[in-house]
Amino acid sequence: MADQLLEVEGLAKHFRGGGNWLTSGGDVIRAVDGVSFSVEEGETFALVGESGCGKTTVAKMILLLERPSGGTISFQGTDVSRFRGSGLREYKRLVQAVFQDPYSSLNPRMQVLDIIGEPLRVHQRMHGRNLRMRVGELLENVGLNPVTASFFPHQFSGGQRQRIAIARALALRPRLIVLDEPVSGLDVSIRAQILNLLVDLQRDLGLSYLLISHDLAIVEHMSHRVGVMYVGKMMELATRDEFYGNTLHPYSNALLASVPNPDPDIPMGEAIGGEVASPINPPTGCRFHTRCPIYMETSMCRDVEPDWREILSEHLTACHKVEPALV
């Protein structure tokens, strides 16, 4: 196993919904409820799940935009919450992000030079000629003409904007980039270009990615390992080939079955019914039991929360119905 870059252990985020200081707080929303995984050097770890399952909240906690309610995030062996001063600066240099909406992630009032130059100005006090040269270089890295440094975001298409966002994330030569639905906001015709660009950059620069996505086709294309989340919990975690070849958890199976296949002769898989369970009042026992196709009226599924077990080597899942092959 390669070196661990980022390790997440029992991460939780509980939001207090509703009330304010007058009404003594409303319901607790368990957006993330004990999630563990790691991202290794040079790999892409994909976090998948339906909307509302807590993927983005995990990303926000890693990016220090939200404070975890419990659990730890370690980067290169150090607890991230302990970072202060220069350690914190270094973390903010080494971990960057690309968000879903390239229309919201670029300040409309700034020239591309200033957008991509922002991290360079903040961290390296770069300016003038050096800054222009480095920004030109970064624009070329993502396949844009360096002349466009003087343009404003509205002069670009969605795909080009996402390239600018990627160039900004690359500016400080980071180790880890959090990709939160990086192509969901783009036309289908542009997606492959951006994904290939990301794969090429990873290969050339030895980057690690934490890919947040609901699109299993993209995950199969990009990732090395996959983690599946459902209502704030991790359901299954495996290497890509294991996950797509030997899916264990019924929820993962249902997700895979919902991916449309371009071949009309292959029948669509059985889709699961129902809605994502609410994180305000999650089901008891296994959180998936309300929609589970293999759930039977056993008190086990309904009452006992399944353990997070390693079923095969590097293949973990939380389901009572799966028998461990490892002894």
């Binding site: 990016l63 935009l65 992000a97 968000f99 992630s105 922002e118 961290h123 400080l172």
Partner: peptide, 17 residues
């Protein structure tokens, strides 16, 4: 609430900036 502000925080841009 716009994403470019979140990205600036991720980068570590000082609050006054």
């Amino acid at each position: 609430e716009r994403d470019f502000v979140a990205i600036a925080k991720v980068i570590g841009t000082p609050t006054w900036m």
